[in-house]
Design a protein around this nucleic acid. Structure first.
Lengths: 352, 352
DNA sequence: ATAGATGCAAACCCTTTGCACATTA
DNA sequence: TAATGTGCAAAGGGTTTGCATCTAT
């Protein structure tokens, strides 16, 4: 885990010149736990410690940090510029309490996806999205003093990413277990069992990491959700696993359902993983995306092998027959028929 | 349609004292077509017309309008306060072009729904949500001059609300037409036909209103989407209509599907209609919600009647028969079987 | 008569800048 | 020494306010 100092060092732009005062301000700022310091608030804080640092230097250093990617400018519409630092602090949206002025952070991949749709529809190239919800926080409504969390946001983010990943693994495990039980072909069963095994293994790892995280950080599980991810909340294989319950699903179809799920899952985790800021949560998503792609590749290979075997079997069956042409034609057309049936597997058509 | 003056009058707070200057400023502001005037921009504009109006009065009047609900404060983070008026101008989100400084407005019920989920999860009481997407607009990317629309936003909003309502009516019409064709029971058929007729009538009205709107406002159809409403985009009955294609759907099930759809539709339109600002779009939604509720009530009554008839028939059949148990048991188990089938309608039946 | 609206200019608040001085590579 | 960082104080910009002056009710 990076220290604040390391974080600053990795962001420090080349070519500048070091200075003790700037270092002090930056260090002070990055160590700040309360999310969003107004610039002039920071001036008071710092000049309280060392009055020889001037207002101008602090403002200039804040700008320097923004340019370096150490700080982000935020605006809560109260006429003063605020800054939040990026150390252990992924990009996020805000709930702003107008009573206690505290702000709470969250991220919603679902909202981000919708925002993307809107911008795409307008051919607008987005650079930054700001979502602020103003209102009254739970504590203020209850008349309680504000309860401030001491946990870094990225830990909660990692927790939530793990939760999503675990749910996905669980549904994947169910899927492959069920598929293996269902499989008629020995080789198909083997593949599904192998994948089930892998899912179980990954699941174990993820759960171990989750347990570790929870142990390292007291009250972690009590923290409210940071990452809202409805789209993946129930595990991306849940629907696929359900499809296996339907009558008449054969190995080939199970493979195709698996391919579809892994593909979706891969794209999903890749897409969001890439978009998140550097963090354990991001890493979890990207690793996961890689695993899903491996599974996808494996299933596709297996599917091709199955097709090849079927074709070979059809040819072998045709040989003893008098007219190879006819049989071949029949086999081909049957194959085409199945493919056509499978092309829209268990999806209801929308158009009337 | 309200005039700007009427709009102001309905909002004017009681107890104040009239003044020509304030009236002038308010009138001037509300007639402003370009969305978001910075306060000091407005000062220049107004003092250009009448230099006897002082800066302070304009600032004070802006605050007065915000208190009266005539104006809304918006903040694009550029250090100046902006205001937009509420006349023909429902609440919305913003796309802000950092190149041409123009801002584009949109509303997304889907995003609003997600925001609600987040606030509910945190027990946060929201008062106002601000969503701003900063980036580059289409014109600026293409190097073209900004194309400014002269249409009031609420007209585009009405257009979009009509589109959603029309899509819903269409899918409802398909549903009831199909259900009527499917119905075995004469009375069931009659109900479905009646509802199909009503949907057709509503649809006609909505389409007429749509045509009228398009005629009144040149280029209306060329305007980009204002209301994003993915959840209802395809018509809320589309899925229900598809379910009717499945084998073994009887009158009772059709009724139940209809009930589910109408209920969903009613809640949907009510929920969003209530949340929108006063506008034709809002009225369209709320009227629609009422119609859907009427249909819902009708279907529920019909469903109850059907049950009662079935029960009566069963009793009548049981009387002459030696063992009424058997008949009843068979009917019940068939019903259960079909119900289970209905729960997972994923599988598409090609036959029938 | 009197609360409320207006004008003027000064005050305000936070932020930025010009310039002389100090520091670092 | 030459480019970069710092301090001070002043300027900047947008907004708000105190107070005397009007003006509707």
């Amino acid at each position: 885990m990076q220290s604040p100092t390391e974080f600053v060092e990795t962001h420090r732009p080349a070519g500048g010149r070091r200075s003790g005062k700037r270092d002090f301000i930056v260090e002070f700022f990055v160590r700040q736990t309360s999310g969003h310091v107004a610039a002039d608030e920071l001036v008071d804080l710092i000049r309280g410690v060392d009055a020889r640092i001037s207002r101008a230097t602090i403002y200039r250093t804040l700008q320097w940090m923004v340019d370096a990617g150490i700080a982000r400018r935020v605006d809560f519409g109260d006429g003063r510029v605020r800054f939040e630092h990026g150390y252990r602090h992924p990009r996020h949206f805000h709930l702003v309490c107008k009573t206690c002025q505290q702000s709470f952070e969250f991220l919603s991949s679902d909202i981000e996806a919708l925002v993307e749709e809107v911008t795409a529809a307008r051919h607008f190239t987005p650079v930054q999205s700001v979502l602020q919800i103003y209102g009254t926080c739970e504590s203020c409504q209850a008349g309680r003093p504000p309860a401030r969390s001491t946990l870094p946001v990225d830990v909660v983010f990692a927790r939530d990413a793990l939760r999503v990943a675990i749910a996905t693994e669980r549904s994947g495990l169910t899927f492959y277990t069920r598929a293996a039980r269902l499989a008629r072909d020995a080789r198909g069963r083997e593949v599904f069992e192998r994948l089930a095994g892998e899912e179980r293994e990954h699941l174990g790892k993820l759960e171990a990491r989750y347990a570790e995280l929870v142990e390292q950080h007291a009250d972690l599980e009590a923290q409210p959700t940071f990452l809202f991810f409805k789209g993946a909340a129930n595990g991306l294989f849940a629907a696929g696993a359900e499809e296996l319950r339907e009558a008449g699903v054969d190995d080939r179809q199970a493979l195709l359902i698996g391919i579809r799920c892994e593909r979706g899952s891969h794209l999903f985790f890749k897409r969001y993983g890439e978009r998140f800021d550097e963090s354990e949560g991001k890493r979890i998503f990207l690793e996961f995306a890689g695993e899903e792609r491996d599974h996808f590749d494996l299933l596709v290979r297996e599917y091709r092998a199955l097709i090849a075997r079927e074709r070979a079997a059809a040819t072998a069956a045709a040989k003893p027959a008098a007219s190879g042409r006819t049989t071949k034609g029949r086999a081909a057309s049957r194959s085409r028929g199945t493919a056509a049936h499978r092309r829209k597997p268990a999806r209801r058509k929308r158009s009337a």
